[in-house]
Amino acid sequence: MIISAGLLYLALFALAARMPRHRPVLLGGWQGHGFVPHLTLAGWSLMALSLASLWTRADVGIALVGWIGLLALLGGGVTLGISYCPGVARAGVPVALALVLTGMASGG
């Protein structure tokens, strides 16, 4: 579930950062970078990966329900971050990456 949560946050962040309204807040000086146009594809791919990572679990149904809840939690986090505290939303990216790596290292 840790890997899935990390990937989901990265997915939501990428999708939000691709939107012109949120791009300056989330990307700052990076907004003119060449990777920006590919963020939509990256976001949806990461979301698909996040879902796919659940398939390795024995209790896939229960994990899927948890994922739906995580979508609300992390989506709400990104939204509130953009509105009130963009630094925290940005800081979530390395944390999410660390979660993915930790999850991969610990096997789940």
């Binding site: 309204r21 949120h22 979508l71 609300a72 939204t79 509130l80 953009i82």
Partner: peptide
């Protein structure tokens, strides 16, 4: 496009943003 948008302190706009964000982000649930 409105998925992550919440603009506080703007009257009707804020209520609409809040309602949309609450509805959309947790839509599958």
């Amino acid at each position: 496009r409105d998925m992550f948008t919440f603009r506080p302190g703007r009257g009707q706009r804020s209520w609409l943003d809040g309602h949309n964000a609450l509805g959309v982000l947790s839509l599958p649930f």
